[in-house]
Each structure stands twice: as structure tokens, then as C-alpha cells.
């Protein structure tokens, strides 16, 4: 029996370099610039929290990291690999869909609206990608999925369809589903924003455990408490730029920028 959510963390990827590195990342939708030159990096085993008002570009940045969105300019590396492109000499070549999928398979993502597959039970949701993508034998995948669901407190809900689960339970299945692929990086896109207030805690607890066990995580959230407790780095995004970044004790307790002070005063009010 496994009792560690990140039992299979890919330690080979935890080298000296940053897990995520963004250099002057720009992203626009038509005429609207959503990201305007983002620079930041996340070291292995760090938890990095992105804060800021809606429409500030946090979610878009997250989606660029696993190449669900293509960036328009700049460079984005995950574990030292350029996302979605191959650099030969000075020329960038777009990757084939298959190669992009291979890159994504080691980056877990958790969505605001869970996005569980409604036609599959909880355990089928967790087993699907290991079996179909990594070709894990069915029995082994079943065992691992069961262990993961137990670890997020859903040992009794293995064969339940998402529609019969509460929001908090669904989100924990979604986290287990992402962990089943043994990711080296986890992206959380407002994982508690669609939850009833009394269900937020159970999801945050799982995330805190993950952070303590050494998972590298980037979390978009409005939960300042979570950021204070587990974040190694915090960045405040607004208008497509990072307004302020640093350790949580600085950014959240003694912010330098007026914009950060204003945001915190409203969130904490």
C-alpha cells in the first residue's frame, strides 16, 4: 500500500535547472494582448502561487505552460524542454501533435470546473490516461488508481459516476487523475473557485499535502491563506504582466507595489 501521493515523483527530472522557465512570454487573442512579456521561473519541488484579478492573464499563462495555448513570442521551458517547439540552430520547428501530447503527459492539470469525464466512473477517470497513453497494464492501473483515490479520501467512491459526487469530491478525483500520470509538474487553475465554501478545505488539504511531499506546483487561486501557508513563491498578475513577485512573506505581508496592496486589501477585506 502506498501512503504517499507523490510516491512516483519523477526524481530524474529534479535536476539543478528550473522546472518551469518563462522568458518574455507574449500571448494575444486577436487584438487583445493577454500576456505581455512574462518572466518567471519555478524550481523543482516549489509551490508557486499566481494571484491577481480576473482577466489578468493567470489562467492563460497556465494554459500556455502545457501548450493548450500557443504563445506568440518568447520562450517557455518545462524541465529544460521548450514547450511545443524544437529549436534547431536558430530556427523553431513546431512539434507534431503526438510529441506535444508526450510533453503534456508529464504535466498534470486541474481545472476550475473539474472536467471529469462524465461517462466514466471515478476509477475509470483515473485509469484512462495511464492505460491509453502510457500503456500501463489494466490490473496495475486499476491498483494504482484505487490507491490514489484512497489517498485523496475517496476509497468508498471508486465506482461512482462524477454526477453523483460533490464538487469537492469531483475535484479530488480530478487531482488523482492528474497524479496517475506521475507528473513532474502540477498546474492548478482556480481549483476551489467553483466549490461550496465548506468543501474548499478538503481540496486545499490534498494540495497542501502534495506541496509538502515535494510536488512542483503552480497554483492560480484566490486563497491567500493557502499561499501564505505553502507557497515558496508568489506572483501578482494584472493586465498581462507580473506586477510583483517574491516570497509570500514579502509579497503578501509587506508588498512594495500599490497595485498589490490594493488587491490584497480587497481580497482580505
Amino acid at each position: 500500500m502506498v501512503d504517499d501521493l507523490t510516491a512516483a515523483i519523477d526524481t530524474t527530472a529534479l535536476g539543478a535547472g528550473p522546472m518551469v522557465k518563462a522568458e518574455q512570454v507574449w500571448k494575444s487573442f486577436g487584438r487583445l494582448d493577454v500576456l505581455k512579456g512574462i518572466d518567471f521561473q519555478v524550481m523543482p519541488q516549489e509551490t508557486y502561487v499566481l494571484l491577481g484579478p480576473s482577466g489578468g492573464g493567470k489562467s492563460t499563462l497556465l494554459r500556455c505552460i502545457n501548450h493548450l495555448e500557443k504563445i506568440n513570442a518568447g520562450r517557455l521551458w518545462v524541465a529544460g524542454e521548450l514547450m511545443g517547439y524544437r529549436e534547431k540552430g536558430a530556427v523553431l520547428h513546431e512539434m507534431k501533435a503526438r510529441d506535444v501530447s508526450a510533453q503534456r503527459s508529464r504535466i498534470g492539470m486541474v481545472f476550475q470546473r473539474f472536467n471529469l469525464f462524465p461517462h466514466m466512473t471515478a476509477i475509470q477517470n483515473v485509469m484512462e490516461a495511464p492505460i491509453r497513453v502510457q500503456h500501463v497494464p489494466h490490473k496495475q492501473a486499476d491498483k494504482e488508481a484505487e490507491d490514489l483515490l484512497r489517498l485523496v479520501g475517496l476509497g468508498e467512491k471508486l465506482d461512482t459516476y462524477p454526477a453523483q459526487l460533490s464538487g469537492g469530491q469531483q475535484q479530488r478525483v480530478a487531482i488523482a487523475r492528474a497524479l496517475a500520470m506521475h507528473p513532474k509538474l502540477m498546474l492548478f487553475d482556480e481549483p476551489t473557485s467553483a466549490l461550496d465554501p465548506e468543501l474548499v478545505g478538503e481540496v486545499l488539504d490534498v494540495m497542501k499535502r502534495l506541496a509538502r511531499e515535494g510536488m512542483t506546483m503552480i497554483v492560480v487561486t484566490h486563497e491567500i491563506g493557502f499561499a501564505k501557508e505553502v507557497a515558496d513563491g508568489v506572483a501578482l498578475m494584472d493586465g498581462g504582466v507580473i506586477v510583483e513577485k517574491g516570497p509570500p512573506q514579502e509579497v503578501l505581508v509587506n508588498p512594495r507595489e500599490e497595485r498589490t496592496k490594493l488587491f490584497l486589501s480587497k481580497v482580505l477585506a
Binding site: 502545457n66 493548450l68 501533435a97 503526438r98 501530447s101 508526450a102 510533453q103 503534456r104 503527459s105 508529464r106 504535466i107 498534470g108 492539470m109 481545472f111 470546473r113 472536467n115 471529469l116 469525464f117 462524465p118 461517462h119 484512462e128 490516461a129 491509453r132 497513453v133 480530478a174 487523475r177 492528474a178 500520470m181 498546474l187
Partner: peptide, 26 residues
């Protein structure tokens, strides 16, 4: 829902696999 494809793609499922296993059954 577009979120279904996104979830599948983010798990490393290729577009054709996503269509066959996730989108078409729904």
C-alpha cells in the same frame, strides 16, 4: 463541453484518442 477535450489533452491523450475515447462517447 470544450473542457472535456482540454482535460484529455492535458493528460497527454492525442487528439484522435481524445475524440474516440472522450468526445464521441459523450
Amino acid at each position: 463541453d470544450a473542457g472535456q477535450s482540454e482535460a484529455a489533452l492535458s493528460l497527454g491523450m492525442a487528439p484522435t484518442l481524445t475524440m474516440r475515447r472522450i468526445v464521441l462517447p459523450q
